[in-house]
Every structure is written in C-alpha cells, then in structure tokens.
Simulated assay, not measured.
Amino acid sequence: MTEPLVTTSSQTVGPFFAIGLPWEDGPFVVPAGTPGAFHIAGRMVDGTGEPVPDALIETWQADPDGRFDHPDDPRGAVSSGFRGFGRCATDVNGRFEFLTLKPGALPGQAPHVDVSVFCRGMLRRLVTRIYFPDSDNSADPVLALVDSEFRHTLIASVAPFGYRFDICLQGQDETVFFDV
C-alpha cells in the first residue's frame, strides 16, 4: 500500500541568482564609449542596513527618444547599440551598476527606468522605478500614486558618474515597490 501524497513545506529561493543569471555584458545597456552614456549605481540593503550580496537587479527602459528595443514597439529603438535591458548581480557589499542612456519620456509619463529585484527569501520579484531629479516628474501618473512622503525613494540622486539609486528592502528607508 502506498502512502498518500502530502504537501511539502515551501522553501525560500536562492541564493542562485548571482550564480546562473548574470552575464558579462549584462550591466551594459549600451556599449562602453557610447556618447551620452552614464552610470546608474547603487547599493541594495536589508531592513537593518546590511548589504544584500547575492541579489540580482534587472532594468528595462526606453531609449532617449522614448522608444523600446522590442517587437511590441513598432517604432523600435533608434539609438545605436541600445539594448534597453540590463542585468547586474550585487557584489559582497550589495553594490550594483549599469551603463545606460537617459530614457526619453513615454506618452504621459516622465523618463524612468523600470527595475526588478530578485533575491534570496523572496518567491516573487519586487518591482520599482528610477526617476531622475533633473526631469519634470510632476505629471507622471505612477509617481503621483505614491504618497509624497515616500516619493524620494524612487528618485535617483545626481552623482559624479551619473546617478545614484539605492534599494532598501525594508524599514524606515524602504524603497517603494509596486504590486504588479
């Protein structure tokens, strides 16, 4: 007689993201040396401020003309070498960095970069956005949904290399994440 099947307990995910998913060109949304390219760099931390060393950050964005390098955008990206997608594992200090171009505004939206966060202990990705402090973000409908007290967690800061955007998973400085 066989034993009845029983549901097993769920398990946390990872830390496998930093092992199998990154690739050498992943952080380069555009090739090095692309005119106008800059870095978006930051650090991912947990609720106590400790670095998350084995996470994976993905970005997806429009090119400077507000076009996507994707079949669903019939206009297509016009920037040479622009991929629109980036993937970077965090290092032992929780740091990540992308080389990209500033995205153009989409119809009815401010320039932004979509971000997905994958890390151990999470069964679903977290989704957020990076907005730019030197863009007019006032009419963006997504940013307008965020309580004004927390909007700053979605706006990068200007840095010598381009922009800095830190991701905090929990706590007082928690980055706003969207339920998608």
Rank of each mutant, 00 (worst) to 15 (best):
L5S: 14
V6N: 10
S10P: 12
S10L: 15
Q11L: 15
V13R: 11
A18R: 13
I19Q: 14
L21V: 09
P22Y: 02
D25K: 15
V29T: 08
V30K: 11
A32K: 14
A32D: 07
P35T: 03
I40A: 03
D46M: 10
D46S: 08
P51Y: 06
T59K: 03
W60D: 05
Q61P: 07
D63I: 08
P71R: 14
R75Y: 13
R75Q: 11
S79F: 10
S79L: 06
G84N: 04
A89H: 02
T90F: 01
D91M: 06
F96N: 02
E97P: 00
L99C: 03
L101Q: 04
K102M: 07
G104I: 07
A105T: 11
A105L: 08
G108P: 00
A110M: 05
P111H: 12
H112V: 00
V113H: 01
V117W: 05
F118Q: 09
R124W: 05
T128H: 11
I130Q: 01
F132P: 02
D134Q: 04
S135R: 09
S135K: 07
D136C: 02
N137H: 09
N137Q: 06
A139V: 09
P141H: 10
V142E: 09
L143H: 07
A144F: 01
E149N: 12
F150S: 15
R151Q: 15
A156R: 03
Y163D: 01
R164L: 08
I167D: 00
L169N: 04
Q170P: 01
T175G: 09
T175Y: 08
D179P: 04
